[in-house]
Design a protein around this nucleic acid. Sequence first.
DNA 1: CCTGTGACGTCGT
DNA 2: CACGACGCCACAG
Length: 103
Amino acid sequence: MAAVTDEQVELVRALICSIPAGQVATYGDIAAAAGLSNARTVGWILRVDGSDLPWHRVIRASGRPTDHLRTEQLERLRAEGVLAVDGRVDLAAVRHRFPRTAG
DNA sequence: CCTGTGACGTCGT
DNA sequence: CACGACGCCACAG
């Protein structure tokens, strides 16, 4: 019995795939949009099955990518037009808002 | 069952 | 803004 059903995982995956190029979303937003309570779960899904997802569009709430992916993240984002100042992204400008699935 | 770890977030200093 | 500490959920040993 998994606390997180496959639907949640699929939903998170779908949301991440729904992030348009040039924009990014935070773990918390994805988690909230998927109905999850903790952002860690989003990171968990990515680590388990995020190889097929545009994880580079998923960043922290601070606008900074993860340390081990810092280079990759910024590199990929830069290719999409998402410039990062001092390793930080302007969430106020590139933050993507998810459509409310539950009315 | 308990402990350790992690692609996170928020509060206090 | 940077650093430290706690809370949160899920998985592995």
